[in-house]
Nucleic acid binder design. Structure first.
Lengths: 215, 215
DNA sequence: TAGATTGTTAATCGATTAACAATC
DNA sequence: TAGATTGTTAATCGATTAACAATC
């Protein structure tokens, strides 16, 4: 009855598998866990286990997985066929870049509307997405039952805008600002943290260079 | 003799601790693992263990950690006091947003030069960072011994530019493109993957809503 | 059939959490 | 001193990997 809860690491790898499958030439009709693992630097068994979670069709002994079918299964599992609507707050450089990115639709998300407080920007649109005043946020979100908010502002106004989002019925915040947001525990905050990425890269680089110089 | 290798999860949390400490009002002189854990939704022991890795000074029983000292220790550990130079390739919307971001210096990275193939852009600068032709990349990188490359192009030219980067002595690639890069195993690739973030958010949101409706 | 490949059960590994001794 | 808090050792938990049976 209960769908077995998918683990976080597995969930994170699914879009990566899909991306790999999409990168294959059309002539490739099937693939195997071994091939996928090799291409992505993962363990073969891990790939099989992950895929078995997301693909009800699975693979076949000897032949492996049908690429088209597997892509379909992963897309379905990840909800790409039923895009969720989102709003974006803060039409600065980063906000503009995200609004201009045409790939979200294929990733199961559609930015319905953007908000800013700059009269110069309000009323315009980017990539067919209208920019409205932040004061209209509540009305629009409640009306369309939008639950995802993308925050791309400076850190200073972030918390206040976050609070407005919560009043507007937003349940999940994709936070590109550097601010640490305070929210009730039923609200999801996903921090897109450049500092974390940089720390990883910088540390790995140091390790690598230590290794090289040791040779 | 050997510094004990820091675990990946710990390394990822260090910048988050630092960010929290920086968000504290100046009047707060000390803090405790308990407070930090509460603020960030983590386990208290985990915080202490993490901090003990990065802070040689540690905390004191009863009083906890000195905020200024701990910030200093974390910054030092994360290499923020000795910024590494990087290049950026692809001055589109996202590239421009990253070039305009003034916070990298504080995070231990300095973008030395950007590259593009659009004659309109070459010769200009953004945020005092010059934009040069991709054909100058090799010369500039080798001269200044730059080892980090930030890739913000469309997926189509990504692999070729990646290869050029490797010829230019780049050892770590921060990949914002959606392309899957093929590199030798001693080269570090860190994929900044919006699809992964979206999958997490979307799935958590579904879970949350399932939970709510079950009440 | 034999061999390749899947999917699953068992073993290992590593990270988190609990328990506790040390100390300011 | 008593109590709060640190740092560490031990126990638990969860994810990865290895072993293996099933099957096309």
């Amino acid at each position: 009855m209960e769908k077995p809860a998918i683990s976080k690491p597995t969930l994170q790898r699914l879009p990566i598998y899909l991306n790999y499958l999409q990168s294959l030439p059309k002539s490739v009709k099937t693939t195997s866990a071994k091939q996928v693992a090799l291409a992505l630097g993962l363990n073969e068994v891990q790939v099989r286990k992950d895929l078995s979670v997301a693909s009800p069709n699975g693979g076949k002994p000897k032949t492996g997985y049908e690429v088209e079918q597997l892509k379909e299964d992963l897309e379905e599992f990840l909800g790409y066929h039923h895009p969720k609507e989102a709003i974006l707050i803060g039409v600065g450089k980063l906000g503009t870049a995200l609004l201009s990115f045409t790939g979200f639709q294929q990733l199961g998300m559609k930015i319905f509307c953007a908000f800013d407080n700059d009269p110069e920007k309000i009323g315009k649109e980017i990539n067919h997405i209208p920019i409205a005043s932040v004061h209209e946020m509540k009305k629009i979100c409640l009306e369309r039952q939008i639950h995802i908010g993308i925050l791309t502002t400076r850190p200073e106004p972030a918390q206040e805008l976050c609070n407005w989002m919560l009043e507007s019925g937003i349940l999940a915040i994709w936070n590109f600002s550097t601010a640490l947001l305070n929210v009730p525990e039923n609200i999801i905050v996903h921090n897109e943290n450049l500092a974390v990425s940089l720390a990883m890269i910088s540390h790995q680089l140091d390790e690598q260079q230590k290794k090289e110089s040791a040779v």
